[in-house]
Simulated assay, not measured.
Amino acid sequence: MKNSFRQTEILEIARRVGKVTVEGLSEHFDVTVQTIRRDLTELDEAGHLNRVHGGAILASGTTNLAYDARRSHLADQKAAIARACAAAIPDDCSVFLNIGTSTEAVATELLRHKNILVITNNMNVANTLSSNPDCEVVVTGGSVRRSDGGLIGTMTVEAIRSFKFDYAVIGCSAIDEDGDVLDYDIQEVGVSQAIIAQARAPLLVADHSKLLRTAPARICSLANIQAVFTDQALPDQLQDACQRWSTQVHVAEIAGDPLSDLPGKLARTAGKL
């Protein structure tokens, strides 16, 4: 296999699972570890990956991935997380769904819910749930962010503060090792903070790649979240912190994951739903 083809596939694997290991890739491609190390070094120098001990992670920065790239990134994992989150939301309640591809996946899983009120600042969420006759959809005002159909700004925050909802489902761009929930867009952070303040039960949906990234703006701490829905077990230190904060952690099962045989991949554990 030529370097360019192998490196393209390495990058695709990294986008799907967040982190790649030298030994795992060596076995996957049936090449030497020295060959993989060269590939990872070249990808690091090109700015696509960041080299870490034993492998590499997705490169982080001050801007998020494009919307289409985020939508396809870890799609199976997001779907499983969304199913777990939606299962925790009962019929006959009010829910806020924030901007993000993970929250859009939750909207799809709410299509069969009965007698629910969904408030959202996400035009894609509103379009999805408009096909559920048992769901009343309220869209906040605000400035439309053309890149992803999100509504942000002062008008959005003011509209959110006029509600008190039972549940709020938010996403994020990154989760720091100390439990801080982070994002790239400062305006979106203000909206997320308003949502959390108006929710009786704030829920976070975040795949494991968010633990491998960083972002400059702080939304809140996981201590302010009632439950986290993810696809892999949190690091022990962060899991212990969530227990101290009484923040529930639910780990969704991913059926038929084609990369589950890669050595070095984090083990999944099934959470109680």
Score class of each variant (00 low, 15 high):
residue 109 E to F: 04
residue 100 G to N: 04
residue 121 N to K: 07
residue 135 C to A: 14
residue 116 I to E: 03
residue 94 S to G: 05
residue 64 N to D: 12
residue 133 P to G: 04
residue 86 A to W: 06
residue 105 A to M: 13
residue 47 G to D: 04
residue 86 A to C: 03
residue 130 S to Y: 10
residue 71 R to P: 03
residue 66 A to R: 12
residue 98 N to S: 13
residue 122 N to F: 06
residue 131 S to D: 14
residue 55 G to P: 14
residue 52 V to M: 09
residue 82 A to K: 08
residue 66 A to S: 12
residue 101 T to C: 01
residue 107 A to D: 06
residue 133 P to R: 08
residue 107 A to S: 14
residue 102 S to A: 15
residue 125 V to A: 13
residue 121 N to L: 07
residue 112 R to W: 01
residue 87 A to W: 04
residue 96 F to D: 00
residue 94 S to V: 08
residue 52 V to H: 09
residue 119 I to A: 13
residue 124 N to Q: 10
residue 109 E to V: 04
residue 101 T to I: 11
residue 109 E to T: 09
residue 102 S to I: 11
residue 59 A to H: 09
residue 91 D to K: 10
residue 102 S to L: 05
residue 61 G to P: 13
residue 75 A to C: 08
residue 67 Y to D: 03
residue 132 N to T: 07
residue 134 D to V: 00
residue 93 C to H: 00
residue 136 E to M: 11
residue 104 E to V: 09
residue 97 L to A: 08
residue 118 V to K: 05
residue 70 R to Y: 10
residue 110 L to P: 03
residue 111 L to A: 10
residue 105 A to Q: 15
residue 135 C to D: 11
residue 116 I to A: 01
residue 48 H to I: 00
residue 73 H to Q: 15
residue 80 A to H: 08
residue 60 S to P: 12
residue 96 F to S: 00
residue 44 D to W: 01
residue 91 D to V: 05
residue 76 D to I: 04
residue 115 N to Q: 12
residue 72 S to W: 02
residue 79 A to D: 05
residue 80 A to V: 06
residue 113 H to P: 02
residue 109 E to Y: 05
residue 136 E to I: 04
residue 73 H to C: 07
residue 86 A to E: 10
residue 104 E to G: 03
residue 87 A to V: 02
residue 116 I to L: 03
residue 90 P to Q: 03
residue 47 G to S: 07
residue 49 L to P: 10
residue 106 V to H: 10
residue 89 I to Y: 00
residue 81 I to T: 05
residue 48 H to D: 06
residue 48 H to C: 02
residue 102 S to T: 15
residue 76 D to A: 15
residue 108 T to F: 02
residue 45 E to P: 02
residue 118 V to H: 04
residue 108 T to E: 11
residue 109 E to K: 11
residue 130 S to T: 08
residue 123 M to Y: 03
residue 65 L to Q: 13
residue 65 L to S: 11
residue 97 L to G: 07
residue 60 S to T: 15
residue 89 I to P: 00
residue 79 A to W: 15
residue 59 A to M: 12
residue 103 T to L: 04
residue 55 G to F: 12
residue 130 S to N: 08
residue 78 K to S: 10
residue 128 T to S: 02
residue 105 A to G: 04
